[in-house]
Design a protein around this nucleic acid. Structure first.
Length: 318
DNA sequence: AAGTCCCTCAACCGCGTTCAA
DNA sequence: GTTGAACGCGGTTGAGGGACT
C-alpha cells in the first residue's frame, strides 16, 4: 500500500514539488522576516531620533595638527558647511563633529579677524556686555570677524581687569563700592543680583550717578553702539565669502581694518591664519598673482590667496 | 640657569534648545 | 506628543610661553 501510494503519479508529483515548495516557503519566510526585521530596524532608528554624531572611542582630542587643519579646510571648501556629524568621517579626521565645528568657527574660518581687539571693539564689547550680559555669541554677532570664544577670553583676561582698575564692577557695570563708605554698607536684606542680566547703562546711571559712572560714560560712549532690545532677534552675518577683490588692509597694529567703503572701520575683517595655512603650498601662489584683481573661482585657491593677504600682513607687522 | 608663578587662549565639557524621526 | 541626537552656547580647563625670583 505504501508502494502504491509512493508510485501514484499524483503523489509523485506532490513529492517532487515538495522541495520546491519548501524552498519557496523558506524564501518567502526569509523575505518576510528580513522585511519585518528591517521594519523593526527602521522603527528603532525612527524611535532613536538622529544618529549619534560620532563614536566617542578612538577619537583624537587636544590641539589640532596642521595636517588635520588642512583636511578640514579642504573638506569644507569643497563641500561647504553642513552635517558636522559627517565631516570627520568624510574628511578623514579622527575627531568628533563638534570638535571640527569648533575648530572651524573659532580658528579656521576665513572671515576671522585675529589679533587683539581694537579700542573701538573693546568699547563695543563693554557696552554690549552691559546690555546683554554674558551672552557672548550675541555680542560676537555685533563684531564682524570675532568669535564668541575670542570675546569671552578677551573679556576675562583684559577687560575685566581694566574695569576693575577703573573702579567698575565688570559683572554689574556699577562702580565698585568702597567698604569704608557707610552709605555702601550691605543691606540687611540684600537684593539678589542677576549675574547674567546686568543692568543697562541707563539703569546704572539712574541708580549710581557717581563720579566713576560718569568717567565710565565718558570713556565708553554708548552712542557708538546700537542699543540692544531684550527681544532683539540677532541676525547672524552671512557665510564667509572669500573675495580677493575686496581685499582688506590692516594697520600695523593688526587690529584696525579699513575697507574700500571707508566709513565702516570693522566692516571687513582682517584675516590671520594659523601656521598650518602656510604649509599648504603658499609658495606656489606667492608673488604670482595680484590679490586685488585676480579672481579665481576655485574656493581653495581663494582661500590660499587670502592666506597670502595674511602673510603680507604678518610681514608688515614684524 | 633653574624653578615657580602668572597669563593667555585653544579646546573641552556640560547643559539647554532645536529638530528629525 | 515623544524621544534622542545635533547644535549652539557659556563656563572651565590646561598646555604653552613669558615674566619673575
Amino acid at each position: 500500500m505504501v508502494l502504491h501510494f509512493l508510485y501514484a503519479p499524483k503523489t509523485l508529483s506532490l513529492l517532487l514539488s515538495l522541495p520546491l515548495f519548501s524552498l519557496a516557503l523558506f524564501l518567502s519566510l526569509s523575505l518576510s522576516l528580513s522585511l519585518s526585521l528591517s521594519r523593526i530596524e527602521q522603527n528603532r532608528i525612527k524611535k532613536m531620533g538622529r544618529q549619534p554624531c560620532c563614536e566617542k572611542v578612538g577619537l583624537k582630542k587636544g590641539p589640532w595638527t596642521a595636517e588635520e587643519d588642512r583636511k578640514l579646510i579642504n573638506f569644507i571648501l569643497n563641500n561647504g558647511q553642513c552635517c558636522w556629524r559627517a565631516v570627520p568621517k568624510l574628511a578623514g579626521l579622527l575627531r568628533c563633529g563638534k570638535s571640527c565645528r569648533l575648530r572651524w568657527t573659532n580658528y579656521l574660518r576665513p572671515d576671522l579677524k585675529r589679533g587683539l581687539l581694537s579700542e573701538y571693539e573693546e568699547k563695543m564689547v563693554i557696552d554690549l556686555h552691559a546690555q546683554l550680559g554674558n551672552r557672548w555669541s550675541k555680542i560676537a554677532s555685533h563684531l564682524p570677524g570675532r568669535t564668541d570664544n575670542e570675546i569671552k577670553n578677551h573679556w576675562n583676561t583684559h577687560i575685566k581687569k581694566k574695569l576693575k582698575k577703573m573702579g567698575i564692577d565688570p559683572l554689574t557695570h556699577k562702580p565698585i563700592q568702597q567698604p569704608d563708605d557707610p552709605a555702601n554698607q550691605p543691606d540687611p536684606k540684600p537684593q539678589e543680583k542677576e549675574p547674567d542680566a546686568p543692568p543697562t547703562p541707563n539703569q546704572v546711571q539712574e541708580e549710581n550717578p557717581t563720579k566713576a559712572t560718569e568717567e565710565f560714560a565718558n570713556e565708553f560712549c554708548t552712542d557708538e553702539v546700537p542699543l540692544i532690545q531684550p527681544d532683539e532677534i540677532v541676525v547672524r552675518s552671512p557665510p564667509p565669502v572669500i573675495s580677493p577683490s575686496s581685499s582688506s588692509t590692516c594697520s600695523s597694529s593688526g587690529v584696525s581694518c579699513s575697507t574700500n567703503g571707508g566709513d565702516q572701520e570693522m566692516a571687513l575683517p582682517c584675516m590671520d591664519w594659523p601656521e598650518s595655512m602656510y604649509l599648504m603650498g603658499l609658495d606656489d601662489i606667492m608673488g604670482s598673482w595680484d590679490v586685488t584683481t585676480d579672481i579665481d573661482p576655485d574656493p581653495f585657491t581663494q582661500y590660499q590667496k587670502s592666506a597670502f593677504d595674511q602673510e603680507a600682513w604678518k610681514l608688515e607687522l614684524f
